[in-house]
Structure formats: structure tokens, C-alpha cells
Write a protein that binds this DNA or RNA. Structure first.
Length: 492
RNA sequence: CGAGAAGUAGCGCAGUUGGUAGCGCACUACGUUCGGGACGUAGGGGUCGCGUGUUCGAGUCACGUCUUCUCGACCA
């Protein structure tokens, strides 16, 4: 049939694109660099949103919404920040269209030029800090802990579905604190929230760490990151949390009176994850048959495919399926019964596999007679026949197994593709083959840049919890002394 | 913006020295099927990216132009 997926081994990026398209997640839009997220893909994103949102709220964060448009002048206030984004901003210059006087459709009305151009937000630090200025006057107003779910626009040269699109959906948290310690703690807390979400919900074994100065967010003092390994061995930055120091407070003049009545600048953090996580999901878990969704993020956890020849058979099977569905829903699972009678079972099997549904239950006349069902799991592509009796409980624990197995598989893959490396010659060879290399680094931006120029590899992070990297050694490139190893990899 | 490639049916493509516009999938109808992507029969669907030129005749040749993709620089 038509929906063959390119083999992963043959062409990794083609395979990735195929999966996104054929699993019905998204497609390229006619609008340059933008994507259309289709209902199935959006359902996954919604699930991510609702779980993350709950985790944020547990940390005291509240949702808010700030404008899409940012006056150009706001950008000139934080020099380093604007330098990081200036090259990729969409700018609104006019506010009216008119009929072309020469009769060629519609043109921009030259008289409707804006006095000050508006920037479509590439990120909201500037608009939010100009707002926070009015919210914060006293230590009693702090901390301010806001998050917003929104879209942002970055005019990228080259785009890829989910990984890099001109417009993308994300969440950005922006907090203001009275002390540096409290802000740093918040930045750390949020990166740990991301790590927990990635590991426990998305089944992504991520490395948590600090970014090197070169890779830091524009305007940040420190950037924390979660880095995931894709199946081609490349690194994907899956989420970041920044300690912004007082940079934005000073640029936007956000001061508060402390308990002694003295004015102080507030301390800030910002943190975000985007629809890029969808890309991570595809690339980390997918196989040659399509998407593999961890049960906790799957919009449909169990799909039931009835097999029948006659209407009586169909009705008898569906009756049993509705019963099973009730049992599973009572245990908190989402179930879909695929009762389309225009498609054959084999087609449905293949289609739901492509879409990554964790568990498939098939039932036909044979099962009806024997009181059994066929249960297939997506992660291992195995299936077994089992009694209908107690099926809900069985599937409940099976989903748990699948979640753990998918994580285990990804973790094992990463373990076998991460290693210490102390020779520059070896480094140049191995980094090309898709490995994370733990190497000594002298801590200078010059060395990092030279390594990047020669190999395309960058420091993904200076890990803080995953591996034991604190040992003395010599920089892999310069030979200068180093106190710890860092993670080098080619990244997306 | 540098290098390469491609634009022909909804999608993927073929089209030889210039001579009636094709194939696979998808789509429509009917029938047989239905436990791993069914099969048969009959259909519908085209400004060959756009423009100019050469020619009796251009999907095919020349020139121009537009668009898209891949690889670089930039990035979540």
C-alpha cells in the first residue's frame, strides 16, 4: 500500500519526514517554513501541554498571556538579547491593505505605515519585562511566576517539521525574584521538571547540564538544558531553563523596595519547551513500521480492531469490545474501537502501528468462540492470545511495561553510544559516527569554537547529574588542564 | 547569501533522435473478499511552473524568469 515508510538505516532524515507525514502528525504548509499540525499530532501536543501544565502549577506557576507584537524599541533595551534574535525577526510595518490602483489584486497601502514597527515575538522576555515593571514595586510583590502557552516566530533559513519551523508552539515561563539564590533555584527547579517530564512521560533519557558560554541563551547568565540522543546519535536540545541574573531587570528598570526600604533590581529566570518535543518523540522511539508512542503521551493508548465477516459477527465482537473499553476506561486509559467497515483488518493493523498506538487488541469469531483476544504491543511488535477474563487489568499493567521498556530501550541505546574520549584523532573519527563523547575541556570559548569549526561538534552540556564526569585531565584539543569532562556531540 | 538538483493528474514518478499525454498509488461504481497493508471489471481526473524564441509541429531544443528541495552559514 501507499504508506510505506522509508527505512531508518537507508535515509534517516527521509525516514523522519515520512513518519511525521504518514503518521498524520503534521505537514508542510504552503506558507514558507511553516507547518500544519494535524489533529492526531495536535492531540499529542495537547497531552504534553496538560501534563506539563500540571507540573508547572505544582511549583506555583500561573498561566498568563502577553501580546504577540512587540514594539521595536523594546528590543533595543537589552543589547546582547537582541543580537541573538535580530537576524530572524518578522517585522510588521503596515496596518492596511487596499485595492491595487492598477487592478492587480491587493497591495499594501503605503499611507498606512506604522510609526513604530512591531516585531512578531521570537520570544517574550522584552514585552514581559516591560510589563513586570508595572507589577513589581515591593518585596511583597515577589516572586512573580508566570507561564504562557503561545506561538513564536523565528525567520529561519532552513526548516524541518517540528525541529525547526518559522512559527512554532511553545511554553515560556518568566519569573522574577528578590534574590539571586531564589532565581537560580527556580531555574534549576524548572530544568528538573523538564527532565522528569522527559524521562517519565516521554520516555526520553535526557542529560541535564549547563550550557557553555558559547551556547548560552542571548542575555542569560547561565543556561540549563536537557539533551536527548536521537537514533542517529545526534543530540537534540529538548528544553532549556535560564538564569537571567539582573540583565533584563536593569534593561527594563524593574526595581523593588526590599525589607530595609532600599531599591534593588529583581532577579529573573525564563524557561521553555516547544513542539520540537514532537520531533524528539519521533526520532527517539520510532522504527521502520512507524511511530512508537510511550503510553503516557499517546492520545490513544489502546486500539481495538474487530474482525468479522457478517453483521452478526460484527455486532457480537463489538459488544465485547464496548465492555472491554468500559473496563479500560475505568482504569484511566483512552481506548479507540476502530469499527470502520470499509477497511480490512490488516490495513488497520498497519495504520495503527504507523501511528504508534501502544497496544492493539484484535478480536474475531475465533476469539468469540474461545473467550480470548489477541493482544499486540507496539514497542516489541509481538502479540499473544489471552483470555478475555481480566483483560483490563492485564492491559493496564502491560501499558506500564511498555512505558518502561521504551525508556529502557532508549537508555540502552544512549549507553552504547556514549563514551569517554581522550584522543583528538579518535574524537574526529568517532564524532562523525553519531556518538556522545565525554571529553575534557579547558573551559575556553576559543577551544570550543575551534572544535566546532573542525568537526561541527559542540558542547551539548556540562552535565550535573547523569554521569560521573568530575575528574582531572587534559583538554582534548588544546591539552590544557581540565577539571571535568563535558558532553560533545553533533546537534540538530 | 554560496553550491547542487528538481518542477508533467491529489501523491510518487516515466516520457528515447522533437510527431495523438503515460505508469503506480489514491479517487468513483459494481462484484467477490475480510485473522497482517485484498482482487477483478469499468470509470473520472492534465494550461507538462511561467514567458519568449526556434520549428510544419515543443513535455522534449535555446534564452529568460519564478518556485521548491538538498547541502553549507544561522538557530529551540
Amino acid at each position: 500500500m501507499a504508506k510505506e515508510v522509508t527505512k531508518r538505516e537507508e535515509n534517516y532524515s527521509q525516514w523522519y519526514n515520512d513518519l511525521a507525514l504518514k503518521a498524520d502528525l503534521a505537514e508542510q504548509s504552503a506558507v514558507r517554513g511553516c507547518m500544519v499540525i494535524k489533529p492526531y499530532g495536535y492531540a499529542i501536543w495537547e497531552k504534553m501541554q496538560s501534563i506539563l501544565d500540571g507540573m508547572f502549577k505544582e511549583t506555583g506557576v500561573q498561566n498568563a498571556y502577553f501580546p504577540l507584537f512587540i514594539p521595536k524599541s523594546f528590543f533595543s533595551k537589552e543589547a546582547e538579547h537582541v543580537a541573538g534574535f535580530a537576524k530572524e525577526c518578522a517585522v510588521v510595518t503596515h496596518h492596511r491593505l487596499m485595492n491595487d490602483p492598477e487592478g492587480k489584486g491587493v497591495v499594501v497601502d503605503p499611507d498606512a505605515r506604522l510609526e513604530e514597527e512591531l516585531i512578531v515575538r521570537p520570544t517574550s522576555e522584552t514585552i514581559i519585562w516591560s510589563t513586570y515593571k508595572n507589577w513589581i514595586t515591593s518585596w511583597r510583590d515577589l516572586p512573580v511566576l508566570c507561564n504562557q502557552w503561545c506561538n513564536v516566530v523565528r525567520w529561519e533559513m532552513r526548516t524541518r517539521l517540528f525541529l525547526r519551523t518559522a512559527e512554532f508552539l511553545w511554553q515560556e515561563g518568566h519569573t522574577a525574584h528578590a534574590t539571586a539564590e531564589e532565581a537560580e533555584a527556580k531555574a534549576n527547579e524548572m530544568v528538573q521538571v523538564y527532565a522528569k517530564f522527559a524521562r517519565e512521560v516521554m520516555a526520553l533519557p535526557v542529560i541535564v547540564g549547563h550550557k557553555s558560554p558559547n551556547e548560552r541563551f542571548a542575555g542569560a547568565i547561565d543556561t540549563l538544558t536537557i539533551e536527548a540522543m536521537m537514533q542517529d546519535g545526534k543530540a537534540l536540545q529538548a528544553g532549556t531553563s535560564h538564569f537571567l541574573g539582573q540583565n533584563f531587570a536593569k534593561s527594563f528598570d524593574v526595581q523593588f523596595a526590599n525589607k530595609e526600604g532600599k531599591l534593588e533590581y529583581v532577579w529573573a529566570t525564563s524557561w521553555g519547551v516547544s513542539t520540537r518535543l514532537m520531533g524528539a518523540l519521533i526520532m527517539a522511539h520510532g522504527d521502520d513500521n512507524g511511530l512508537v508512542l510511550p503510553p503516557r503521551i499517546a492520545p490513544i493508548q489502546v486500539v481495538m480492531v474487530p474482525i468479522f465477516k457478517t453483521d452478526e459477527e460484527k455486532n457480537a465482537v463489538l459488544d465485547k469490545m464496548y465492555e472491554m473499553k468500559k473496563g479500560l476506561e475505568a482504569l484511566g486509559h483512552s481506548v479507540k474501537i476502530d469499527n470502520r467497515d470499509t477497511l480490512r483488518p490488516g490495513f488497520k493493523f498497519a495504520e495503527w502501528e504507523l501511528k504508534g498506538v501502544p497496544v492493539r487488541i484484535a478480536m474475531g469469531a475465533r476469539d468469540l468462540a474461545g473467550g480470548t483476544v489477541e493482544v499486540a504491543r507496539r514497542d516489541t511488535l509481538t502479540k499473544e492470545t489471552m483470555p478475555l477474563e481480566g483483560i483490563a487489568e492485564h492491559v493496564h499493567s502491560l501499558l506500564d511495561d511498555i512505558q518502561k521498556n521504551i525508556y529502557g530501550k532508549a537508555a540502552a541505546f544512549r549507553e552504547s553510544n556514549i563514551e569517554k574520549c581522550d584522543s583528538w584523532e579518535e574524537f574526529k573519527e568517532k564524532i562523525k559516527t553519531g556518538k556522545f563523547l565525554l571529553c575534557h575541556w579547558d573551559g575556553t570559548a576559543e577551544t570550543e569554537q575551534k572544535i566546532k569549526d573542525e568537526t561541527k561538534a559542540t558542547i551539548r552540556c556540562i552535565p550535573i547529574d547523569t554521569c560521573v564526569c568530575e575528574e582531572e585531565g587534559k583538554d582534548i584539543y588544546s591539552g590544557k588542564p581540565s577539571e571535568r569532562r563535558v558532553v560533545f556531540a553533533i546537534s540538530y
